[in-house]
């Protein structure tokens, strides 16, 4: 911990949250305006994030896999956060922001783990030394992102947002449940917490799907349109990437292909009760065998990143 020696009692007012926030940046702690705290040197998760790569596992594979799961959460979180100040009701805005925050928390740990395993610690990017998670979130270009395309497609209206969240959270919950047994301690820890959180996200989306699907003619039509809009990106959720296959064999990753039955069972139950139907639309194909997991994305991601990353790129040294 770098901050201990410089603290004076005069700074201290335990009831003053602003004092506490200011303190975190006062001692050369490379904490970021854009949120850090799992960065090297000051904290704890570090003890876990720096855990050795499990035996027999390729470090580059593990880093790539952490990026995949971290980017899924990061990009989905950003899409949900777009509803802040734009949601139909305050309660829904708060709910969507809460879900986004859970996913962002998962992303931070996963990106920090990726950065560590990759040996990226304290290496400058764009000439600035920023914490791993921030470097990875704010200074990677579209083709370096490893999220599934479902996470990035336009949020559209509330029906489409709920459709995406229903499928995404059902799938992620199935992955995280399997990952609680991962041989990588950081993945297992993220999964252990994430299962509880994502179960709430899935329930939220499932209940809205019921309410809209089994509601008025208009709400039903828009909920179905939401499903139709995101469905081309569903099939690729179950396509196993080579990295995922190797790590699944090593007891580190969850093979997404194995989650299909669980996810289908959930979707069938929800769509059935909501009187909606499973869209019959062609899947978005891979480009020369490559998709989101290889950095081949839809045009939506570039726009999302432009908004998400602009502030960090304009002020790469910003701190607060």
């Amino acid at each position: 911990m770098s901050s201990e020696g410089h603290h004076t009692a005069a700074d201290d007012d335990a009831g003053n949250a602003y004092r506490a926030l200011a303190e975190t940046t006062s001692d050369g702690d490379p904490r970021w305006a854009f949120g850090s705290g799992f960065d090297s040197g000051s904290d704890a998760v570090e003890a876990e994030i720096t855990s050795p790569v499990p035996d027999g596992v390729d470090a580059a594979d593990l880093a790539a896999y952490c990026l995949m799961l971290g980017d899924d959460a990061l990009i989905c979180s950003q899409r949900l956060a777009e509803w802040v100040a734009a949601a139909p009701e305050l309660e829904e805005e708060v709910a969507l922001a809460n879900i986004a925050l859970d996913l962002l928390g998962q992303a931070r740990v996963l990106l920090s783990r990726a950065g560590h395993v990759e040996g990226r610690d304290s290496s400058p990017m764009d000439g600035t030394a920023v914490a791993d998670e921030d470097a990875l979130a704010y200074f990677r270009d579209e083709r370096a992102l490893r999220n599934v395309t479902l996470a990035e497609v336009d949020g559209g209206d509330f029906g489409r947002t709920i459709a995406r969240l229903l499928v995404f959270s059902s799938w992620r919950l199935a992955l995280l449940q399997r990952l609680t047994a991962s041989r990588d301690p950081v993945l297992a820890a993220v999964a252990g917490k994430g299962v509880k959180e994502v179960a709430y996200h899935r329930d939220y989306a499932a209940r809205w799907t019921l309410r809209l699907g089994d509601g008025t003619a208009v709400s039903r039509q828009r909920m179905q349109a939401g499903l139709d809009g995101i469905w081309p990106h569903v099939e690729s959720l179950f396509t196993t990437h080579d990295v995922e296959r190797r790590l699944a064999h090593a007891g580190v990753a969850a093979d997404p292909g194995d989650t299909r039955a669980d996810v289908d069972a959930v979707l069938d139950e929800v769509l059935g009760r909501a009187t909606l139907h499973r869209p019959d639309v062609p899947a978005v194909g891979l480009v020369a065998g490559r998709g989101g997991r290889d950095g081949v994305h839809t045009e939506a991601l570039g726009h999302l990143l432009a908004e998400m990353q602009s502030l960090a790129r304009i002020h790469p040294e910003a701190a607060w």
């Binding site: 704890a44 998760v45 003890a47 820890a189 252990g192």
Partner: peptide, 8 residues
């Protein structure tokens, strides 16, 4: 001050 995620 260490932060641990497990057990959740």
């Amino acid at each position: 001050v260490r932060t641990v995620f497990s057990p959740a």
